[in-house]
């Protein structure tokens, strides 16, 4: 028996899932655009209350580190790292794309979620996955989709990515799923200790800031 708690606050929802090995013991998720900082502790508590499991008994924490809302990512990461500090528990970072695929896939998979949907710059966040072998997430232009998709690789994507993919790929076979917190904790049961992603935010863009210049110089 191995208890794994997963947190996802990087999207328009706040979710927590608790697994015992492969079995989902409890899952809570609420749609929200903001307020993750308010609701996350209560959701974790309700998952513990529902199962009668105490925080100290959990073997692994995992948290979605992005791509996603920067503020949401930080809320989840700061909370997970606080839990890790208090409990001395191993803590994993999981990408949004890994959460979408939900566990290590037997066959090669290209996971896609929309990055920019408005023409002319249509892009996806993409990650190649097979077993526990994972590429780093990268930004993939819709124009380049054909280079990455073949009969050997299946595409897993979110519903809001489907239309764009269809415009660029003739007759694709798509495995369409929603991202939920349920996809976060499972990975922790498979990943080798030396292959752990740190629970650190995965920012996909640099901060928007312009260096200062004195108007006099």
């Amino acid at each position: 028996m191995s208890l794994s708690l997963g947190i996802h606050t990087a999207g328009p929802f706040c979710g927590v899932a608790l697994l015992d090995d492969d079995t989902l013991l409890a899952f809570r998720e609420e749609k929200m655009r903001r307020g993750h900082d308010q609701f996350l502790p209560g959701l974790v508590q309700s998952v513990l209350d529902e199962t009668g499991i105490v925080m100290g008994a959990i073997d692994r924490f995992s948290v979605c580190v992005g791509p996603g809302s920067f503020t949401g990512i930080r809320i989840g990461v700061a909370f997970a790292r606080g839990l890790a500090l208090a409990n001395g528990t191993q803590t994993f970072g999981i990408t949004s794309l890994e959460a979408l695929v939900s566990k290590p896939p037997d066959r090669p998979v290209l996971a896609l979620i929309p990055a920019k949907l408005r023409p002319p710059d249509q892009t996806f966040w993409a990650q190649r996955l097979q077993g526990t072998e994972r590429s780093e997430p990268f930004e993939l232009s819709a124009n380049d989709l054909t280079d990455y998709v073949s009969s050997d690789i299946s595409v897993v994507c979110t519903p809001d990515a489907v239309n764009t993919i269809r415009n660029f790929l003739p007759d694709p076979s798509l495995d369409v799923r929603e991202i939920t917190a349920k996809g976060v904790p499972c990975w922790a049961n498979f990943i080798r200790p030396d292959d752990i992603r740190a629970p650190s935010p995965l920012y996909v863009r640099d901060p928007d800031a312009i260096p200062a210049k004195s108007p006099l110089l």
């Binding site: 502790p41 925080m55 100290g56 930080r74 809320i75 909370f79 790292r81 606080g82 839990l83 208090a86």
Partner: peptide
Amino acid sequence: VGMMTAKALAMS
């Protein structure tokens, strides 16, 4: 960030 760290420590 600071507030969530403190909440996690308090809750644990």
